[in-house]
């Protein structure tokens, strides 16, 4: 029996009774199954779990889980979202749309933190933790005081400053008639002037037409010389393992860069990390615990890296790295092998 058939059979067995829908397809969902996936929360509080959390707890959790991207005070690092400030900026040339200045409902904050954060380790926070982080975000936006505690009971008492700032799509009334007139076809203007040019701003990515043209020319020229990209030299290692490692590394790429031109991002760049002392990348602000372990002589080898990646937060308690870890030994070995290919 194929694996697919087995799986299908298993699904049928787990299915229970056939249902009375018009086509009799599918099966009834069990309450405990619905509970696993049904996590959404609405402005009226429907969907909120039991629990509570205060600003002070939220501040600690935010520093550990969120500040790497959003900054200690929600001011954001790089291009990651700004979460605080921006009051009164919505009519400016450059509005700053934050939880405080723009978001109409508190439930949106709770729901989003709970479903999608921390980035790359979603749905890992307990209800109390989400309440606490939400409370801290309210505090950062001057919506509550520092001794505020958010719970399912106090939730709907919080009103967001911009709740009244939204209205239903009114294009049907405001635009459609105006934009449905028969247009002029000839002699519509007397003169035309260029008022703005993209070339003046010049933000188009490199490697566009010029590069394409160059490629076309080179290829047309050199009949079929295959494009040779500089490949990393690899000696006496398993290419399949490295290839697998490259795939696993996708999980790390949100924060870490490797290769030519790698720079520090949310995490340090990882060029040459295997075989090097921990915490050794210049200009990167490591967590205190990592710096301490580096001081005690931690060196990243395939083994220590693998141990760390199994459970980052147990291996270095208090690490800033918000990553759940790699449960499969193969994945850990592969990613270490991949990293070892970068000097």
């Amino acid at each position: 029996m194929s694996r697919f058939l087995k799986a299908a059979l298993f699904a049928t067995l787990a299915a229970g009774t056939a249902q009375a829908g018009p086509l009799g397809l599918g099966r009834e969902a069990l309450p405990e199954e619905i509970a696993v996936w049904d996590i959404d929360v609405r402005p009226d509080g429907l969907g909120l779990p039991e629990g509570s959390g205060d600003v002070a707890t939220g501040e600690l959790l935010f520093a550990d889980n969120c500040a790497v991207c959003h900054g200690d005070f929600g001011e954001a690092v790089g291009r990651w979202p700004v979460l605080a400030g921006g009051e009164g900026s919505l009519t400016n040339d450059r509005p700053v749309k934050t939880v405080g200045s723009y978001w109409p409902y508190l439930s949106t904050v709770y729901d989003y933190v709970n479903r999608a954060m921390p980035f790359g380790y979603a749905q890992s926070l307990e209800a109390d933790e989400v309440y606490a982080i939400t409370a801290y975000l309210l505090y950062l936006n001057y919506i509550v005081d520092e001794d505020f505690e958010l719970s399912r009971d106090t939730f709907t008492q919080v009103e967001m400053p911009n709740e009244g700032g939204f209205f239903m799509d009114d294009r049907a009334e405001v635009e459609l008639t105006q934009f449905s007139a028969e247009p002029c076809m000839s002699g519509c203007k007397t003169e035309v002037k260029i008022t703005a040019r993209a070339a003046v701003i010049d933000v188009t990515p490199e490697e566009t037409a010029a590069k394409a043209a160059e490629q076309a020319a080179t290829q047309a020229d050199a009949a079929a010389a295959p494009e040779t990209e500089p490949e990393t030299e690899v000696a006496a290692v398993d290419p399949a393992l490295i290839e697998a490692g490259e795939k696993v590394f996708r999980k790390c790429k949100a924060c870490h860069q490797v290769g030519e031109e790698a720079e520090n991002g949310v995490g340090p760049h990882l060029n040459g990390v295997i075989g090097r002392a921990a915490g050794a990348v210049d200009d990167f602000r490591y967590s205190k615990p990592l710096t301490e372990m580096a001081g005690q002589g931690l060196v990243w080898t395939s083994d220590t890296m693998s141990e760390f990646l199994l459970a980052p937060r147990s291996y270095i308690k208090g690490t800033k790295m918000g990553f759940a870890g790699l449960k499969k030994e193969n994945d850990r070995a592969a990613v270490a092998a991949y990293l070892a290919t970068f000097d």
Binding site: D40, R42, V99, Y105, S107, T108, D111, A116
Partner: peptide, 11 residues
């Protein structure tokens, strides 16, 4: 019976 006003339809 009503919309959810989640992140991708507010923020």
């Amino acid at each position: 019976d009503q919309p959810w006003h989640h992140r991708e339809e507010t923020s």
